[in-house]
Simulated scan of single mutants.
Amino acid sequence: MNFNIRQLEALYWAGSLGSFQAAANRLHTTQSAISKRIAELETALGKQLFDRTRRNAQLTPAGERVSNIASQMLSMSSQLLEEGDDPQEYQAIFRLAATESTALTWLPEFTKRIAVEFPTLRLEVEIHEGGVLLEQLNKGRYDLALLPGPMWGRIYEALPMKTLERAWMANPTLKIPKKNITVEELSKYPIGAQYSDTIHARLQSAWFTRAGHPLRKVVQAHSLSVLGQLTLAGVTVAQLPVGVFSEALKKKKLVKLAVTPELPDVQYFAVYRRSTAHHLAPKVAALAQSCCDFER
């Protein structure tokens, strides 16, 4: 009986992601290569591992058992790779994901540190909002995600990082009182928010609802940068990251508003899946902890 790690990877990810194509994307290969590896593994084991009558990649009972064993073997394989522990030898692809707030502050410095620590590592970076990041992390698209939380389950390892300070801001020409503003008074202005499926938009909407003043005038933006520009132009009042818009605050292009009660800040985490995690995920997550700085 002969089988190899690539065949076990193909089985595990096709079963976990429910698609041969998704597994191919995760492993940077083709769908036909995934099919071939799984067929070879089925021949070696003498068992059918996937139900070919289903549209998605669904494991058979035998496939479930083998996938569980494969998960353990892949984890041990990662541990063996760590035994070498020579950063110069890491030539794998590492997929990192982050929110826009991270991208606009400390992500550039973080990627430089990764390049220094692991000079041969091929780093791929994607920027999305937190909800999308968690969904794609769960599907195995990323090796590590830097996102606000907590909102995950036991399948994840989450290293706490710093809290992102946010504040209500407005163009000073709107002449909104800077102190002791109630939620009711704030709700009379057009409120800027990122699309409703983002983490911060959900928190903001729930905050207004709990205060008894559901949002009526909402201006939605597809990105933090666009939301900031709308606020600078006086179109909206928005809760924005202080570090990202510190220059506009210094130049008095924006002013902070003291709203009662305060909308709490959100802590960020470096998150990766515990099962079959990239062997560098714990090291890169720890590096993220030391680099995280939303004031840059």
Score class of each variant (00 low, 15 high):
79 Q>F: 13
126 E>T: 12
89 E>Y: 10
91 Q>Y: 11
116 V>Y: 14
185 E>D: 13
155 I>G: 06
98 A>R: 03
133 L>G: 03
192 G>V: 02
141 R>L: 15
209 T>V: 06
168 W>A: 06
165 E>F: 08
207 W>G: 00
107 L>C: 02
196 S>R: 10
204 Q>P: 08
159 L>K: 08
180 N>Y: 13
189 Y>N: 05
199 I>F: 15
205 S>F: 01
201 A>T: 04
122 R>A: 15
95 R>T: 12
147 L>N: 01
181 I>G: 00
187 S>I: 04
159 L>D: 02
185 E>N: 09
110 F>M: 10
127 I>S: 08
198 T>F: 00
204 Q>V: 02
195 Y>E: 13
176 I>M: 12
104 L>T: 01
96 L>R: 04
110 F>I: 04
195 Y>C: 07
192 G>Q: 06
138 N>D: 14
80 L>M: 14
100 E>T: 05
149 G>T: 05
183 V>K: 06
168 W>F: 15
101 S>L: 04
155 I>M: 12
147 L>E: 00
183 V>D: 04
161 M>D: 00
151 M>D: 08
106 W>R: 01
107 L>Q: 01
128 H>I: 02
128 H>S: 14
201 A>C: 07
189 Y>V: 08
146 L>H: 02
140 G>W: 09
202 R>S: 09
132 V>I: 14
107 L>F: 01
119 P>R: 07
91 Q>N: 11
195 Y>T: 13
164 L>I: 07
195 Y>L: 13
86 D>W: 04
164 L>A: 03
141 R>I: 15
161 M>F: 03
